[in-house]
Each structure stands twice: as C-alpha cells, then as structure tokens.
C-alpha cells in the first residue's frame, strides 16, 4: 500500500516537476517584459473600514508616513487637508468618504502617493502592503460592487479604479471651488 502510494507520489512529483520546468522554459523563452506585465500584477494593498482593497502598484509613487495634515477650509469632505511630500504640497484624500463609509474623516499618519494623468494625490491609509498577484487570480467585481472597484482577486481583495476615483474627486473638488467662488 505504502509503496504504491509512494510510487504514485513520486510520479505525481515528477509530473509536477516536469510541468514546472516546462512553465519555466516557456517563461524564459518570452521577453522579460511580458512576464512582468501579463503574468503577475503588483498591487499595493490597504485596509479601509475593515475591508481589504488594492491599488495598481504602477500608479503608486511611494508610501509615506506624514507627521501632520493641515486642514484646508472650504474643501469637499473627502479632502483631509494638505501635507508635505518631499517639499511639495500635496492634497490628502480619504477613500472611506469616497467609497461611502460612515465615520469621521481623520488622518491616520500614513499615505500612499498615487499619480495618474499628471495628477498627484495622497491617499490616507491605515495599513498597507505589497502583493504580487498572478493575472489569472483576478476576476470581475460582483454586479453590486462599488463603482470604484474595477476588479477582485480570488482572495477577496477589491482592486480600486484609481484613475476614476482621482478623476471624479478632482472634478468634484473643482466644481465645489468654482461654485463657492461665484
């Protein structure tokens, strides 16, 4: 019995080894770029209101601790204020407000700096990490998902559509500014 099982295990191992080797050979045969772009996605993960979210690492410039956030008067509720990112003034936004969670907007001391379409903004986050997720582990978000969630991983991490978030929030801030002005 044991022998048979061992044999089966060995065979399975060999099979697996061979499969892995084949995969590697295929990977090596490809141009390195494609491996990065197609097979694995790098995500910056964050936690908001107890749920797990992620942002494409491509859009993330850096993750920083910020000492203080200066309040900015007459700004939309999702704007926490201004902070100093390496000598540049950068707006800090609170995704919990954007995603429609309850609670008081307050800076947590850590931000993820994202840049998209020439616009840079700091996103307030409590916890953050980096995950490398194979492309095949992404799935479409459920139908009732938030409009700012563009994908989901098989472990239930929701990938945020940062371009859309930045675009919408920026527009809303701009219209508030010009509305208050007139």
């Amino acid at each position: 019995m044991n022998d048979l099982r061992e044999q089966a295990d060995v065979t399975a191992d060999r099979e697996r080894t061979r499969r892995i080797l084949r995969q590697r050979a295929r990977a090596l045969a490809r141009r390195p770029d494609d491996v990065e772009l197609e097979e694995i996605r790098e995500l910056v993960t964050l936690e908001l209101a107890g749920r797990r979210y992620a942002i494409d690492a491509d859009l993330v410039r850096e993750v920083l601790a910020v000492r203080e956030v200066a309040l900015l008067p007459t700004s939309p509720p999702f704007v926490l204020g201004l902070t100093n990112v390496r000598g540049r003034i950068t707006a800090v936004i609170d995704l919990r407000v954007v995603l429609g969670f309850e609670g008081v907007a307050r800076s947590s001391g850590q931000v993820v700096i994202v840049e998209t379409g020439g616009v840079e903004v700091a996103i307030d986050v409590r916890e953050s990490g980096v995950a490398r997720v194979p492309l095949s582990h992404f799935e479409k978000p459920p139908g009732d998902a938030n409009r700012y969630v563009k994908a989901r991983t098989t472990d239930g991490v929701e990938v945020l559509d940062i371009e859309r978030i930045v675009g919408d929030t920026r527009q809303s801030a701009a219209s508030l500014a010009s509305g208050a002005q007139s």
């Binding site: 203080e68 840079e120 500014a177 002005q181």
Partner: peptide, 25 residues
Amino acid sequence: DLGSFLEHNPHVSGATILGTGSVVP
C-alpha cells in the same frame, strides 16, 4: 501652489512649508 489635485480653492491660494516641515495654507 496647492499641487496638481486641487488647482483651486476659494479661500486658499497656496501654501508654504515651514522650517519644521509643517504645511501652512
């Protein structure tokens, strides 16, 4: 200036960074 995200704010035209690193609108 206020950075690329907020191009305009009704009551704040810009900000400065003090020697301590603090931002003052």
